[in-house]
Design a protein around this nucleic acid. Structure first.
Lengths: 372, 372
DNA sequence: TTGAAAGCGGTACCAC
DNA sequence: GTGGTACCGCTTTCAA
């Protein structure tokens, strides 16, 4: 039987007995130097001759030296601190994102100190929020860059001071942020186009209700939608892209108008979280349940609509995972010096009538599953 | 501006200055005892009067004592070892599961020592594989319980010796395994039924190709499929459930026969990984691309078929996540005494033409994303 | 029943 | 350039 083992802190001696994995003392003993010298060699510190350094490094490698992180953190126990700047709105989304950060922080030992700063909503209070923290001091930043023109220089300032910045939810291009974790909007749009097109032969009409096409995320969703329609030669025709600017009244009004103008409209894709006014309009016109409606994100009001099939699907942008990954990326960079990829683009989950209960079972509070 | 902080190892003194979080020394100082006594109190060790214990515990609570895990692990550095027993087949699935375990092991510090044991396939060599490890010694077990009748007593034996067992991929009911991490089969079947039914008005026929209906996982998928058909009043009629016993030849032969007998069959759900023979049969009969086909799991041969739309979808059972969660559950139990939920049921991912590339971008080797 | 002290494996600092 | 040593917070052992 094959037996492929993995030994982290122990290794097999030739006689087969297990011994503890080597530490700097073992290296020192073999190299006939002191542990101080070994330390200098391993960390490329000054005050050591290149000859001994090379010799020690080779020995360390031969012995399979791996530092004991517990010991290191114990000694260096100066707590690092990161700040998380996110809007309060939309709560269902950003609360989950914060929960993801918290979850990851509880998992990775030793934890970073995390401070949460909340401002009313994107574009309102975000700049001030970040300003206060830059005046103070912290070792890393997680934020959702809303008003790009104002946030971009702040990100620059932070990184120029050596403070790594991780963007979540949306990206800040042309900055040297450490990385970005976001749901991939183009794919979201493409998925919806595919779902709405599936097994239709006769031509039908669909519309998108979005926020603002100058927003990268919103634009990309529409682009992905169009792309997939043509890619699969869909019989669905996109008749309109409605910008509702994430306002309740505007979305309601424009949806009513849309439904009046397209009595045969059979599909709607709401590509932001602003879906409640759209549903209200559909309901009032008696067309909820008659059309294929795909939404974005999941919150309590949506659940019964999906359970009963009045809403076909919603795309869940995995805020919990985003938060967890943002923390992890920052953690590994701060604690281990590991640079993450420049971007992590998550595939959204497709939530349907058939799987929504499983999603709900796994989400509330418990986040990813294994926590208490 | 609201500022909700979270302090793990530091706390705010009344004057607002940050100090390090209290350790057992601080408790000892306040309680006017030695750190040894504090230790006895905190760990409910013998040799301490219940009076002082209560007093110390109260002080510890008041100070918000949280043990420094780095220090604890440093001192206790006896490495715990877990064994992972999984079949070699189906490699695309179980290799990913192993990778998930490895990934989690690299994340959670200090790592457990992980030994991988592989046997040819479920039902072949699994019992022997587990036997060897029970003879040896380890602190925990991760395994896919295949031949229930034989594995069940071994799980009993392990747990009776105090060795926790985590099941993955499939469950072993009526044992006291610590927990099970698996993809939810009933939901898988339900999702496929919903996908195949969507926006069909005229009656159509569908079939399931499965392994063996006496296998819980396979049975549940068929049950979920049937359930969702009736739940949504689907026009799709399930005409046959074919058992192919995960054999290539048998699946090919039976699919050919199926296609001959149902010339109007428009949907097929392959509920195990054994999809290649089915695809071959479809291709030879010229019906690949003509029908709605939904598969299970993702491996290289499938990718181009989905990209070109010849296969509608595949349900990905998230082996990486399963592996990661299994390790995490075992880790938290062994290291922190945290008991996991009795079962974690994962929602499968729906992979379509529109999102397959994003899945591939995030999967290969990099597993969950943030690792190097 | 309690106190004192020795490490665990690193890092950092001082003395040579 | 190099060696020696204190110390991080906790567990454990031995002595009182």
């Amino acid at each position: 039987m094959k037996r492929s083992g993995r030994r982290d802190r122990t290794f097999l001696r030739e006689n087969g007995s297990e011994v503890k994995s080597p530490g700097i003392k073992d290296i020192a003993k073999v190299a006939l130097v002191s542990i101080g010298t070994v330390d200098r060699a391993l960390h490329a510190r000054p005050g050591i001759s290149s000859g001994t350094r090379a010799r020690i490094l080779k020995i360390a490698e031969r012995l399979g030296y791996r530092p004991n992180l517990a010991a290191r953190y114990l000694k260096l126990s100066h707590q690092r601190k990161i700040a998380v700047h996110l809007p309060r709105d939309i709560a269902s989304y950003f609360d989950a994102l914060r929960a993801g950060v918290r979850h990851a922080a509880a998992q990775l030992q030793p934890p970073l100190e995390v401070e949460f700063y909340s401002y009313p909503r994107i574009g309102l209070g975000d700049v001030e929020s970040m300003q206060t923290v830059l005046d103070g001091s912290c070792d890393g930043l997680i934020l959702a860059p809303g008003s790009l023109s104002q946030i971009t220089p702040m990100i620059r300032k932070a990184t120029s001071r050596g403070i790594p910045v991780v963007c979540v939810a949306t990206d800040a291009p042309d900055t040297d942020r450490l990385t970005v974790i976001s749901s991939e909007p183009f794919t979201s749009g493409a998925i919806v186009a595919e779902l709405l097109s599936r097994s239709r032969k006769e031509p039908t009409e669909a519309a998108i209700i979005t926020g603002d096409l100058t927003t990268f995320d919103h634009y990309e969703k529409a682009r992905g939608f169009r792309f997939m329609l043509s890619e699969i030669g869909s019989p669905v025709k996109l008749v309109e892209v409605v910008e509702a600017h994430d306002e309740y009244e505007e979305a309601y009004r424009k949806t009513c108008s849309l439904l009046n103008r397209y009595p045969k409209l059979s599909g709607i894709y709401v590509s932001t979280s602003n879906s409640l006014p759209v549903i209200k309009a559909l309901e009032e016109k008696g067309r909820l349940g008659q059309m294929n409606v795909v939404l974005t994100d999941l919150f309590p009001e949506i659940v019964p609509l999906i359970r009963t099939g009045r809403i076909f699907a919603t795309l869940y942008q995995r805020p919990l995972t985003q938060g967890r990954m943002a923390y992890e990326a920052l953690y590994r960079f701060l604690m281990e010096g590991v640079r993450p990829r420049p971007a992590y683009r998550l595939a959204p989950y497709i939530i349907l009538r058939s799987n929504i209960d499983l999603f709900l079972e796994n989400s509330p509070g418990e986040i990813r599953g294994v926590s208490p």
